[in-house]
């Protein structure tokens, strides 16, 4: 059974945001090796999800990356706001 990366990332980002209703995690593209995921958050939450020097964003990427590498996939995450 394949891992649901959208849910994984959604659950990672959810506790960080103050406007959960504006959080959207969508699969952008997918093939055998590469998976691109787009996170869209409320403008006020952007700073929190990215963190100082991008450290939180980096942590989220690393966790997702580790999980994906189990299925020999690469994952790339874009974070943006409205």
């Amino acid at each position: 059974m394949a891992v649901n990366y959208e849910k994984l990332i959604n659950d990672l980002v959810q506790p960080l945001v103050m406007h959960p209703e504006d959080l959207m995690v969508k699969k952008f593209s997918e093939d055998d090796k590469m998976l691109t995921i787009q996170i869209i958050v409320h403008q006020d939450d952007l700073g929190r999800v990215i963190g100082k020097n991008g450290r939180i964003a980096n942590a989220i990427r690393t966790i997702a990356y580790a999980s994906a590498s189990r299925e020999h996939k690469k994952i790339s995450i874009n974070i943006d706001s409205f």
């Binding site: 506790p15 960080l16 963190g51 450290r55 939180i56 942590a59 690393t62 966790i63 990356y65």
Partner: peptide, 15 residues
Amino acid sequence: TLENLQFYIRNIVNL
């Protein structure tokens, strides 16, 4: 990865 995981959890807990 462990370092990043710890950073993430530390951040959540301290919220």
